[in-house]
């Protein structure tokens, strides 16, 4: 495995390897519950909590968990934290809990979380595993907020429930319906691909020579 620094572990998942916008993981909740910023915040926060808790325990217990049952044990650990998040949200913010419905429980099958346990937390010390979890969870939260912000703004004319455009604004209802999720994600991916390509083109020297690769 390529050696990384702690800051790379922390920031890698936020943008360069963002789980939703780059790796295309966790798209089910990203499309389904991002019709408002509040829903995006709650889902992103719950996923961040589950990711951090799971990575902490998987990294702590990695030497005690037999290889043959590691996936079963990871899923048990993840399911425990998802249930804790589910009960916590129901007790603290019942309205949001009801709005998110079955998607809180479905965090268990979010491949992003199991993927980080298998690929990183089970091989690294606790501190590095936590940094990776915080970075990846924050990246997921950022992606959900990017989608939720656009969808609520255009679909309801509000941000976090506060009116933005005034009373003459006619909401684009489609944006808070399921097609709005696909449209918003599609436009974000389009914009990011354009930006990435533009940066790559600017990196090419103007004299026509190809840029030399950095020394490994």
């Amino acid at each position: 495995m390529r050696q990384t620094t702690p800051s790379q572990d922390l920031f890698r998942g936020v943008w360069r390897e963002n789980p939703v916008l780059i790796q295309m993981l966790g798209l089910c909740p990203a499309l389904a519950v991002t019709n408002t910023v509040a829903n995006s915040l709650a889902m992103g926060g719950a996923t961040l909590f589950v990711l951090c808790g799971s990575s902490l325990f998987v990294s702590l217990l990695k030497r005690l968990i037999p290889h043959e049952v590691r996936i079963s044990t990871y899923i048990l650990i993840i399911a425990t934290f998802v249930t804790v998040a589910d009960m916590g949200l129901e007790a603290l913010v019942p309205g949001l809990h009801k709005a998110l419905g079955a998607f809180i429980a479905l965090i268990v099958v979010n491949c992003m979380i199991l993927g980080r346990q298998e690929a990183f937390a089970s091989k690294k010390p606790v501190g590095r595993a936590l940094l990776d979890a915080v970075g990846t969870g924050t990246g997921f939260l950022v992606a959900l907020l990017m989608m939720g912000g656009i969808r609520e703004l255009l679909g309801a004319g509000t941000l976090l429930g506060f009116p933005v455009f005034g009373e003459h604004f006619e909401p684009w209802v489609i944006m808070i319906l399921p097609p709005g999720g696909f449209l918003t994600l599609g436009f974000w991916l389009l914009g990011l691909a354009w930006w990435t390509e533009r940066r790559a083109q600017r990196a090419v020297p103007t004299d026509g020579t190809t840029p030399q690769k950095e020394a490994a």
């Binding site: 005690l64 968990i65 037999p66 043959e68 049952v69 079963s72 044990t73 048990l76 650990i77």
Partner: peptide, 8 residues
């Protein structure tokens, strides 16, 4: 294996 899953 059984003990690990039981304790977990």
């Amino acid at each position: 294996i059984v003990a690990t899953l039981a304790v977990a």
